[in-house]
């Protein structure tokens, strides 16, 4: 899970006829990198708000929340407490679900909250990128997938889930 500090968690990429090389945004614990400026430049046609990293509270608190989770995990393994392990797993789960909800809300907000004076207006069209997977947004094909850091964290979560399950069975069989 420490890898999340040095690897991106999520990526959104855009492809269009004029952008065969693609544009991408990488979401980290502490911010967004990639072609943010170009994407902002293009989004002004449809009246989407500028993505300004400093306006996201998430990136200020995420590194701490994540650190807190890591500490609990480490403590759980150090004192070999099954109860703490279960708590940790629950926290991770809540964190993941809350994270996805938050991500979805942001996407919804950007995709729907469009300036009424935008140059390009297509009736009934919103520009919310997919939570995960591909979606065609006018001339752009948008893709949203976990990045390497996200995959590692996901894998770690699965391992924890496995361990919790295994411990649970072990406990049952011992009884």
């Amino acid at each position: 899970m420490l890898s999340a500090y040095i690897l991106p968690l999520w990526q959104i990429f855009l492809e269009a006829p004029q952008y065969p090389e693609g544009l991408e945004m990488k979401i980290w614990l502490h911010g967004i990198t990639g072609n943010v400026e170009q994407i902002n430049g293009l989004n002004h046609y449809i009246g989407m708000k500028h993505i300004i990293v400093s306006e996201f509270l998430e990136f200020k608190v995420l590194p701490y929340i994540f650190g807190f989770l890591i500490v609990i995990g480490l403590v759980a393994s150090l004192i070999s407490s099954r109860r703490l392990l279960n708590i940790w797993f629950c926290l991770l789960l809540i964190f993941a679900v809350a994270g996805f909800i938050d991500f979805y809300l942001w996407e919804y907000n950007y995709g729907h909250n469009l300036d009424p004076r935008a140059a390009i207006k297509v009736d009934g069209m919103s520009y919310q990128p997919p939570l995960i997977g591909y979606k065609q947004l006018l001339n752009f094909l948008a893709g949203s997938f976990p990045a390497i850091g996200g995959l590692i964290v996901g894998l770690a979560g699965l391992i924890v889930a496995g361990v919790v399950l295994y411990e649970h069975r072990l406990k049952k069989s011992l009884q």
């Binding site: 002004h44 009246g47 708000k49 500028h50 300036d115 004076r117 935008a118």
Partner: peptide
């Protein structure tokens, strides 16, 4: 001398 550009909330940076 005067100069302006229409209000463009999307180009406020």
């Amino acid at each position: 001398i005067s100069y302006k550009i229409g209000d463009n909330p999307l180009a406020k940076k």
